[in-house]
């Protein structure tokens, strides 16, 4: 039976494991030598990019979890006409690629965007933030909300109603039930969804690429090193480190949440 694995194993070995090893070697072959792997901490340019990347990813994670928790629990717990349609619309952008999401951000907050037009019409300045870290943040939230809502909804469905009833029977108020029963019950879902959200935001490239080449997050820096500076070794070392970071985040989350966690996008 195990021989059925052979085709997949061969493909995977030839096109992932081997190239990854190669990437690791290439990373150490540049002018910096193996210190390319520590440059992300020692070189201020890369270090600042790292900080910006982690910052925007953390902000994305927090915002996405908040939004998805409120909307997800609400949609799962209340059946009202139009509920299914709302769920359907909220999860429609599930597999939109980063480039398209970048464009959606431009439609909202770009130079000809809706937000700018609205703020101008209201007599204020024209708000245009699509081409900055703010736009990137918006894009990542846009990307992560649909799948996180789905995760929260399925976790809410699995919550044991009797626990809440038991808490109420013991005199707990609505807020105490939320704090003591619902949130702890959803914690594993939050951990895994949050980790996916964070890892995706750290590694995503399409949205940043669409918005501007000026946003200094790590994926953009890697891309610039590779194409403009032709510093292939540095690009390899940075992307290897980036890959290790996202994998580590997901692995830690999986240990904490005890279920399969993986990023996408």
């Amino acid at each position: 039976m195990i021989y059925l694995l052979l085709p997949a194993a061969a493909f995977f070995g030839a096109f992932f494991l081997l190239p990854m090893c190669r990437l690791f070697l290439v990373g150490g072959s540049g002018t910096r030598g193996w210190s390319a792997y520590t440059a992300i901490l020692t070189d201020p340019v890369y270090f600042n990019a790292l900080l910006a990347t982690l910052g925007v990813a953390a902000a994305t994670t927090v915002a996405t979890l908040l939004i998805s928790a409120i909307a997800g629990v609400f949609l799962q717990r209340h059946r009202f006409p139009g509920n299914a349609l709302l769920v359907s619309m909220l999860t429609l952008p599930l597999a939109f690629p980063g480039v398209v999401i970048g464009f959606m951000v431009i439609m909202l907050a770009g130079r000809q965007g809706l937000i700018g037009a609205l703020t101008q019409a209201l007599g204020g300045d024209k708000w245009v933030f699509a081409y900055s870290l703010g736009g990137l943040f918006m894009g990542y939230v846009y990307f992560s909300v649909p799948r996180t809502i789905l995760t929260v909804m399925s976790a809410t469905e699995k919550l044991d109603h009797r626990l809440e009833e038991a808490a109420r029977s013991l005199g707990a108020s609505t807020w105490r039930v939320v704090l003591d029963v619902i949130l702890p019950g959803l914690k594993p879902a939050f951990i895994s969804a949050g980790a996916i959200c964070f890892a995706t935001a750290v590694g995503a490239f399409g949205t940043a690429f669409t918005l501007a080449a000026r946003i200094n997050v790590l994926p953009m820096v890697i891309y610039t090193e590779f194409t403009l500076s032709a510093n292939i070794a540095m690009a390899a070392a940075l992307s290897f480190v980036l890959g290790a970071v996202t994998w580590l985040v997901l692995a830690l989350a999986r240990t904490a949440a005890g279920s399969t966690v993986a990023a996408a996008g």
Binding site: L17, A204, F205, F226, A236, S239, T246
Partner: peptide, 25 residues
């Protein structure tokens, strides 16, 4: 282990995978 390995390409950013493929092939 096999399952863990197979999931790696979605844990690792596409950029890294692409660079790895280019550096190998």
């Amino acid at each position: 282990v096999v399952e863990e390995l197979l999931m790696l390409p979605i844990a690792v950013p596409g950029l890294a995978t692409a660079l790895a493929l280019i550096s190998a092939y």
